[in-house]
Computed example of a mutant assay.
Amino acid sequence: MTQYHQADFDTDFGGTFPFKPNFTNAPGFAMHYVDEGPHGDETVLCLHGEPTWGYLFRHLIPVLSEDYRVVVPDHMGFGKSATPRDRSYWLQDHIDNLERFVLALDLQEITLVMHDFGGPVGMGLAARHPDRIRRLISTNGPTPFGQPDLADRLTANSVTSPWFQWILKAEKGGSLETVLGQLGFNILSTLKLNGFENNELITETWLAAYGSRFASPADCLGAIGWAKGFATGAHRFEIPDVAAVRAIREKPALAIWGEADRTLQAEHFMPLFTELFPSAPVHRLPGVGHYCLEDAPDVVGRLITDFIRRN
Rank of each mutant, 00 (worst) to 15 (best):
R135H: 10
L98A: 07
E238S: 15
M31K: 12
E171F: 03
T52H: 01
E200C: 06
Q3T: 14
I110T: 07
G174V: 07
Y89W: 09
I137T: 03
C220Y: 05
P252R: 14
F214P: 03
D12E: 11
L150K: 12
G174Q: 09
D298A: 15
W226G: 01
S279K: 12
V159Y: 15
G287A: 14
H59L: 03
C46V: 04
T111A: 09
E36V: 00
L303H: 05
H94D: 08
L201N: 06
T83W: 10
D106Q: 13
T11V: 07
L193S: 07
G233A: 04
L201Y: 04
P297D: 08
E99M: 08
D295K: 08
P278L: 03
D219V: 02
Y55L: 00
T160A: 13
P278R: 10
V242E: 14
V159L: 15
L285T: 12
V242M: 10
K172C: 10
S138K: 00
I239V: 15
L98G: 08
A231E: 07
G14Q: 07
T16A: 05
P130R: 13
L303V: 04
E177Q: 15
Q108W: 05
D86S: 13
V179R: 14
E200H: 14
F214C: 05
P130L: 09
D298L: 15
R128F: 06
M31Q: 15
D261T: 06
F273W: 07
K228S: 09
M123Q: 01
A244T: 12
L105A: 07
K80V: 00
F237Q: 05
G289W: 08
I304Q: 01
P281Y: 04
C292A: 15
Q165H: 06
V113Y: 02
R309D: 14
M270N: 11
V113G: 02
G222N: 03
L272K: 13
W257M: 02
G118R: 10
L168T: 12
V282E: 01
A170W: 02
P142A: 06
P162C: 11
A231K: 07
G146Q: 07
H32Y: 06
Q182L: 12
S81I: 04
K169T: 13
E204F: 05
G181S: 13
L188P: 10
T111N: 10
T205V: 15
H39W: 06
V44H: 08
H129D: 09
S189P: 02
H268N: 15
G141T: 00
S216C: 08
I167Q: 03
L207I: 14
F78P: 11
F185T: 14
S161Q: 05
H48A: 01
E238G: 11
L264F: 09
G229I: 05
V34D: 00
G54Q: 03
C46H: 07
H115C: 01
D96W: 08
L47V: 05
I224W: 04
M114F: 02
N25C: 06
E294S: 01
A260M: 10
G229K: 06
L180Y: 08
D116S: 04
A244S: 14
H48T: 01
L112G: 02
W226D: 04
M123V: 00
H115I: 02
S81N: 11
